[in-house]
Design a protein around this nucleic acid. Structure first.
Length: 492
DNA sequence: CTGGGGAGGGGGCCC
DNA sequence: CGGGCCCCCTCCCCA
């Protein structure tokens, strides 16, 4: 009897276990379906939100374009909508010495080669069909402007952020994105802009999206990187800071243009690999439509004699003389224009200033001459403004202050501001009167070594610069230039 | 007009 | 990675 009872219990247990297993399987499948449906729903909602947001942005930009010239001559005076708490021209970035200049975010775009083994959506496909399906969804949804796949884990966050924009058109926290549609109006023979799609040999350019976190600034701007590639097939949309990213739409230089930047996003087959504040995008190619020449914060250079206009003019010059520049050159300035990104709520805000300008690469090369990678030490970090390459993230962030006008270091003696700490330190010698460098010939003293070096030419009679017209020699290039301009009317 | 000096901006390199 | 330094360029002022 006991045996029969035991066997019966065993049989019952077996049946229960079997049913339980089946039940669990069904539950798992249901959960999977649930997730898939939820994601689809989120994508749809996101799509709708983005379309609404873009529509709003366009209308706003159009309004600004009609009301205020965004580009006036060599300088753009950006007029922000009232009530916006974004970057203000009368509030130059002022981070006093000792305070942290900025906490910066960056996006690193790597080529396929660079991160071939990196994790990606594709690689993660083994985790579930839904992921790969999701990846496909995002890719196919590019034209409609679907949120970026910030890896599967970050997707929800990104989506949430994007969805947030749906409810607040004035505080559009939408992902920063890079638009791709396949450039057909640009030439980039060197493939600098081919950010991984496919990468030019030895050109792993890593445009750096600069995002400063400050308590008072929240300037978000979408950026577009024009890769100048004709056969692009992928683009991406990046979520810089899911919690605070602001949407930035490009401001067309040509106000008559109607082709406002259409922000669409497509993720490449790879995924974003987010590492702290650095996002690595694999196999990404982007294209830009629309113009947004860089502008400088008119008041960002306090006491700066030269840079305010000069840099901007230089920038314009690089554009104007760059054969690669097209009317759709994607130059963007952000601190001076922030018509959109005003996520300045009390919850804190970030400003995301970034500019992509593949077209100014030539200018950067002219200036630096070694802007591209592939020779010696790789310069994988690209300035989002001018595409100039740098080896270190910090360097490119510092460099981008050229474009942003950011001067975090202020002199306590005269309130002058500097973009670099060493410049501040150098400047402060003006106040201290320190002149550690003395001329061995005349005992004249200088505060700087390069000035001593310059001075030494007085004694050596070195005149390496000669006028090609009259043969007159000069010790300094600037002397020669001045001479030629005045005497020969030749621009050097 | 030339030359010299002062000063700021920027890139590169090294520690 | 950040700081510091070197170097160069440029502009301005002035003698």
């Amino acid at each position: 009897m006991e045996v029969l009872a035991n066997s019966a219990v065993a049989e019952i247990s077996k049946l229960v276990d079997d049913d339980y297993a089946v039940f669990r399987l069904e539950i798992t499948q249901s959960q999977k379906e649930n997730r898939a449906l939820r994601r689809k729903l989120q994508l749809l909602e996101l799509k709708a939100a983005r379309e609404r947001a873009e529509r709003t942005m366009r209308e706003r930009y159009r309004g600004m374009a009609r009301g205020e010239g965004l580009l006036t001559g060599g300088h753009r005076n950006i007029v922000k909508p009232a009530g916006h708490n974004g970057w203000r021209n009368d509030q130059p970035i002022a981070i006093d010495e000792g305070s942290e200049p900025s906490t910066q975010h960056a996006i690193v775009i790597e080529s396929v080669d660079a991160e071939a083994a990196g994790p990606g959506v594709k690689q993660e496909s083994t985790e579930g069909e839904e992921d790969s399906q999701h990846s496909r969804d995002i890719q196919t949804g590019a034209a409609a402007g679907v949120a970026p796949p910030v890896a599967s884990e970050d997707l929800a966050t990104a989506l949430n952020v994007n969805l947030k924009s749906e409810t607040d058109t004035d505080t559009l926290n939408v992902t920063h994105r890079l638009l791709h549609t396949g450039s057909d109006h640009r030439s980039d023979p060197e493939g600098l802009g081919r950010l991984g799609c496919p990468p030019a040999p030895g050109s792993d350019y890593l445009p750096v999206f600069h995002q400063s976190q400050r308590t008072v600034h929240s300037l978000g701007d979408g950026d577009v990187l024009d890769t100048g590639v004709d056969d692009l097939s992928c683009s991406y949309d990046t979520e810089m800071d899911p919690g605070n990213m602001s949407l930035g739409l490009e401001t067309p230089t040509d106000l008559s243009r109607e082709d406002w930047n259409r922000y669409s996003c497509v993720y490449s087959e790879r995924c974003l690999e987010r590492k702290g504040e650095v996002i690595v995008v694999d196999e990404v190619t982007v294209k830009v439509e629309g113009d947004a020449p860089p502008a400088r914060n008119a008041d960002s250079h306090l006491g700066d004699r030269h840079s305010q206009s000069r840099d901007f003019l230089d920038y314009r010059g690089s554009l104007e003389t760059n054969v690669n520049v097209t009317t759709n050159s994607p130059l963007h300035a952000f601190k001076d224009r922030d018509p959109v990104s005003t996520s300045m709520g009390p919850s804190g805000s970030h400003h995301f200033d970034q500019v992509l300008n593949a077209n100014t690469r030539a200018g950067a090369q002219v200036q630096g001459g070694r802007a591209t990678s592939g020779n010696g030490k790789e310069k994988r970090f690209l300035c989002m403004f001018c595409n100039k390459g740098f080896r270190c993230l910090q360097k490119v962030e510092i460099h981008q202050r050229v474009h942003t006008g950011e001067n975090p270091f202020s002199c306590t003696q005269c309130e002058k501001r500097f973009s670099r700490q060493d410049h501040l330190k150098r400047h402060q010698m003006v106040h201290t009167g320190e002149k550690p460098f003395s001329c061995p010939q005349c005992e004249k003293r200088f505060s700087r070594q390069d000035q001593l070096k310059m001075h030494l030419k007085v004694h050596t009679g070195e005149r390496p610069f000669s006028c090609t017209h009259c043969g007159k020699r000069f010790s300094e290039r600037s002397y020669l230039r001045t001479h030629q301009q005045k005497m020969h009317t030749v621009l050097v």
